[in-house]
Structures are given as C-alpha cells and as structure tokens.
Simulated scan of single mutants.
Amino acid sequence: MSAVLYYFDGRGKAEIVRLAMAAANIPFTQEFVREKKQFETMRAEGKLLFGQLPMVEYEGHHLVQSCSMARFFAEQGGLIGSNEEEKLKIDILFEGTRDFNSAFMPYGFLGFKEVLDNAKATAMPRYLPIYNFILSRNGSNGYMVGSKLSLADLGLLEVVLTIEELLGEEELKPYPEVQNFLKTMKSNEQISKYLNSDLRRKKNDEKYVNEVKSVLY
C-alpha cells in the first residue's frame, strides 16, 4: 500500500523517513505543505499528534515522529536486525547518527556557512572516526552491523551524503571505511533509485527557509 508523506518541500526531518521507505521498497508520494493554512488545518483535524511535521498517512493511520516512522518502515523492510543483539546495536548506532545529523539540520536557518563551519569543527571530528572504526571492525562489506543493510546504515548515509554535497568528498578522505560505505550505499538498487528520483528534495536554500518560516511562524 502506498504511503503519503506530508512535509515542507525540502529534506529536513523527513529525509530519514524517505530513506527508510525507499530502502524498504515502500512506494510513497509527497504532499508539500507550503502555506500556514494547510498546516493549521492538519492540526485542527487532529492529524498531527504533537502539532509537528513530518506526517505519513499509511494504511489508515497518521504516523508522526521521524525516528519512530523510520524504525517502523525499516522493520517493514527487514532492516532492524535478525536478533535482539543486532537490533540493539543497530538502534544505538542509529541514535548516534541522529546526534551527528543534528549538527547539519539548522543549515540555512542559522546561517549557511556558520552551520557548516560549526559542524566541521565539532561534529565531524567527533563522529566520523567512530563510524569509520565501526565499519572497519565489521569487515569490508560496507555495512555497520552484520552483512546487510540496516537502519543504522541509512542514518549514517543521510549525514555522509550531506557532507559530500555541502563540503565535498575530500572531507571523507581521512576515513576510508566511510568512503567505502558511501560507495556501497550508492550501489544499493533501492537507494540509488531514490537518490536519482524526483522524490529526493534539493538542499536548503533561502526560498525553502523562508517558506518553512512562513508556515510555522
């Protein structure tokens, strides 16, 4: 059954949900919230439990909270581990990627260069060595846990794609396992299909930032 994602016309907190649906081969369409009236109507109709986006309509339910949705769709696709130990490892590593990703989320909203300078000085030196080590310890298969794609990989992919696009692939050169990981992820049929489709939104720009602000404030 097809899902419908409601969010602004950008990546933001919906991107991890998109990646999870794509990797789990769950078809989805998108409805972009561009006006305050749309947002207020959804809230008034009780579709947004916490009054926030993103929201996904799926099998008669209104799903919210991006990480919960990502876990749900990842489970649909068998991407959360084959036993309890793997599930725990995947969840821990996934949560780490959310902390890492948070350094880039304000891009454009708290400045463009300022956010990148801060991420480059703080988050990247902290998290990239950790994930490079995790990938190295798991062998040369390009995954963090076990021998197949997991939600943890999707979480890291989101951040690494951001670094590649906004700062350049040379930033990853000190981390060869992360570079190999990126190649592995891009070679995945479902992920590649998503990244090269119209479902993938462009990076934040002034227009997007202003549109989000006009809806929320």
Rank of each mutant, 00 (worst) to 15 (best):
G78L: 11
I80R: 08
G81E: 14
N83Y: 13
N83W: 15
E86M: 12
K87H: 15
L88S: 07
K89R: 15
I90T: 10
I90E: 06
D91Y: 13
L93R: 06
L93F: 14
F94N: 00
G96P: 00
R98T: 04
D99L: 05
F100I: 03
N101Q: 13
S102M: 11
S102N: 07
A103F: 02
A103Y: 02
F104E: 00
F104Q: 04
F109T: 02
L110H: 02
F112E: 03
E114Q: 13
V115P: 00
A119V: 09
K120S: 01
T122Q: 12
M124R: 01
P125Y: 07
I130L: 15
N132M: 07
N132L: 10
I134W: 07
R137M: 12
R137I: 04
N141F: 09
G142D: 09
G142S: 06
G142V: 06
V145R: 04
S147P: 12
K148E: 14
K148W: 06
S150A: 11
S150M: 07
A152L: 14
D153P: 05
L154R: 08
L154A: 06
G155N: 00
G155Y: 02
V159Q: 02
T162I: 09
I163E: 07
E164L: 00
E164D: 14
E165L: 09
E165T: 11
L166E: 03
L166H: 03
L167K: 00
G168N: 06
E169C: 11
E170N: 12
E171W: 00
E171I: 01
P174A: 05
Y175E: 14
P176V: 06
V178H: 08
V178F: 10
Q179V: 08
N180T: 14
F181Y: 05
